[in-house]
Every structure is written in structure tokens, then in C-alpha cells.
């Protein structure tokens, strides 16, 4: 096995995603620690902001390009990646833990005879071996583990590994036009959700629970999210009640999130909800009940009616933003 690390980058609609810089920065850091070579790969048609990569990466980036790759295709991507990994004999491959990364990593693992683990939040090189950490039971516990195979594939949780900028003039880019794609499974269309930002990708999340009293009051959550550039989240209680769509649900059977700031409004803090968001860096809780469990993990709390607090909070934030 060659001493090489591959960072798998992600684009959507021709735009490199932020998590790509996180993958690349981790790959680079590990390559320094292990004295391995490092390179990156990206698949897609036209990608408009590829040049941004040069601020993070000076090693080789290969762009596999075909006009039929405007949309994702699990079969085509799996084949391109597996062939590239097998030909170049990478020993560590890092994907983002996104819908795409989770979909691909296990397929590529089987095709390249690798061990695979998803959702890693820490990777250390200690005593000549790589030790990974991932949350289990929706974050109620963590495991440290090794992968006992020559080639290892992992996905890393977004928003955990910090992208690190470098001084670099040029992007070392190689574009490869490819033909004979395997398009047995392919995306033929894309429906964008109404919400602007997805909770899984947001840096700030404003979440509402049953304490918001009704779907008609969620415009307050949306307005606060808007002024903060945040995503809207929800507890399962309000999703089950049909007030909010399931894609907004945070928790053990919704999305596990680690934003910088999580604002919980009228959410009690049931164990399944906490499991999904307790690794947020800062947590704010607004709840009428001073004994609500959410206060056990909140950094800052206000014990009051969220419907009264939110309009004032929105105005205060507007003031500092203007």
C-alpha cells in the first residue's frame, strides 16, 4: 500500500461545499503527521469556485468531469472513485459525512477492500497508529477505535474539523474528461426545499418546540433564523404534529447537529432531542419552565414565554447587525 491520503471533495450544483475545505485540511494535517503524500479528487461537471481551493491546498487536485455529471450518480461516482483509489493505492481516504459521503464511502470500501467508518469527529496519530473517535447512541456515548485493514475509509462530521488557510499562489489542478460512465443509478432531478439552510450544514440553528404553541408562531423562529443567517430546526413533537417538516427535526431520529450556536425555544430537552444537539458549541434555551432539562446543558437561559422573548430578541439582533 502506498503512503498516500486522498481527500474526496463535494460539490452540489457546480459549487464546492464548505465541508470540502474541512476534509482537505484534515487530510493535509494527517499527511504531515504521517509523512504521507496527499491529494484530492472532485467529481462533477462545471465547478465554478474550484479556485478557492488554492487557499487551503497546494497538492494535486483531480477533477473528473463529464456533462452527465451535473447531478449525482452513486454508480458512476463509486466506479470513478474505486478505480482511482485502486490504481493509485491510497491507504487512507476521507469523505465528508454528508448524504453523498455516507452513500458512497461504504460502496467504495467494498470495491477497494477497505475498512470503513462514518461520522468521525476526531482522528489522532498515536504510537504509529490512527485512532478514530465517533459518537454512538446519537452522541450519548463516544467510541475510540482502530481500523485493522491496510486501507481505511472514513467520513468526517461537518463543522468539527476547522479548515486551515495557507499561503499559496496556484491551484495544482488536473481536469480529466471521462467517458463510459456507469449510470445504472442516477439522479434525474432535484427538488430544493423551501428552507434556505439545512440544519445539518448550518453554523447557527434556531429551533422551536411545542412551547411555540402553534405553527402560526413559527414565523418568529424563521425571522430570528433569517437575521442570524441560521437554519430552522424543530423538536419531534412539532414535526409529529405536522407543524414543521421532518427534515427540520433535530435529535436521535432526526438530524444530529453540532453548530456553533443552538437556540432552543419552547423545547423541553427530552433525552432524544439532547442526543442530537448537545455537542453544539453554545446552547441558548428559552423556556417557561425553569426545571426543563434543556437548562441542564444550556450555556445561557431565559425562563420566560418564548412568544414574548423572540420579537424583542429579533429586534436586538437586527440592531447589532445593522
Amino acid at each position: 500500500m502506498a503512503n498516500k491520503i486522498l481527500a474526496v471533495l463535494e460539490q452540489r450544483e457546480g459549487q464546492l461545499k464548505k465541508v470540502s475545505f474541512e476534509v482537505i485540511s484534515l487530510a493535509k494535517k494527517l499527511s504531515t503527521q504521517l509523512s504521507y503524500q496527499v491529494e484530492a479528487i472532485i467529481i462533477g461537471n462545471e465547478i465554478s469556485n474550484l479556485s478557492e481551493l488554492k487557499n487551503y491546498f497546494s497538492s494535486k487536485v483531480t477533477h473528473f468531469k463529464n456533462q452527465d455529471l451535473n447531478y449525482y450518480s452513486s454508480s458512476a461516482y463509486s466506479k470513478i472513485l474505486s478505480d482511482y483509489i485502486n490504481e493509485n493505492d491510497f491507504s487512507l481516504v476521507i469523505f465528508p459525512n454528508t448524504a453523498m459521503g455516507i452513500d458512497l464511502a461504504p460502496r467504495v470500501a467494498v470495491r477497494t477492500k477497505s475498512a470503513v467508518a462514518t461520522d468521525c469527529i476526531k482522528v489522532i496519530y498515536d504510537n504509529e497508529q490512527l485512532i478514530f473517535t465517533k459518537p454512538v447512541y446519537a452522541g450519548k456515548a463516544l467510541i475510540n477505535f482502530k481500523l485493522n485493514s491496510e486501507r481505511k475509509i472514513i467520513t468526517i462530521r461537518p463543522n468539527i474539523f476547522k479548515p486551515e488557510k495557507i499561503e499559496n499562489e496556484n491551484l495544482n489542478l488536473e481536469t480529466k474528461e471521462i467517458s463510459d460512465l456507469d449510470l445504472t443509478t442516477k439522479v434525474t432531478g432535484y427538488k430544493k426545499s423551501e428552507g434556505k439552510l439545512d440544519v445539518a450544514e448550518a453554523d447557527i440553528i434556531v429551533s422551536g418546540g411545542r412551547g411555540m404553541k402553534g405553527p402560526e408562531n413559527f414565523h418568529l423562529i424563521e425571522e430570528l433564523a433569517e437575521v442570524l443567517g441560521a437554519a430552522v430546526g424543530a423538536s419531534r413533537a412539532v414535526v409529529d404534529a405536522g407543524w414543521r417538516p421532518h427534515r427540520e427535526q433535530v435529535g436521535q431520529t432526526g438530524k444530529t447537529v453540532s453548530p456553533t450556536l443552538y437556540i432552543a425555544c419552547g423545547i423541553s430537552g427530552a433525552i432524544q432531542h439532547l442526543a442530537g444537539m448537545s455537542s453544539s458549541k453554545y446552547i441558548v434555551a428559552i423556556n417557561k419552565d425553569k426545571d426543563a432539562p434543556i437548562f441542564n446543558i444550556a450555556d445561557y437561559g431565559i425562563t420566560a414565554d418564548a412568544l414574548e422573548i423572540l420579537p424583542v430578541l429579533i429586534e436586538e439582533i437586527k440592531k447589532i447587525k445593522s
Binding site: A141, L142, I143, I283, N296, A304
Partner: peptide, 28 residues
């Protein structure tokens, strides 16, 4: 198995923070 668990831990306990207030005057 290829994945070998070395250790399972509970996440570091989060310290409860502070209650800033109980009405709109806490917002600023």
C-alpha cells in the same frame, strides 16, 4: 471484525450555564 473498539466513553459533561433572567429585560 476490521473495526476494533478500543474504548467507549461518555461525552464530557456539559456544565449548566446561567439563567440570565425571566422576562424581556434579559434579552440585551
Amino acid at each position: 471484525n476490521l473495526l476494533e473498539i478500543l474504548e467507549m466513553n461518555l461525552p464530557p459533561a456539559k456544565q449548566p450555564g446561567r439563567i440570565i433572567g425571566s422576562d424581556v429585560s434579559a434579552v440585551p
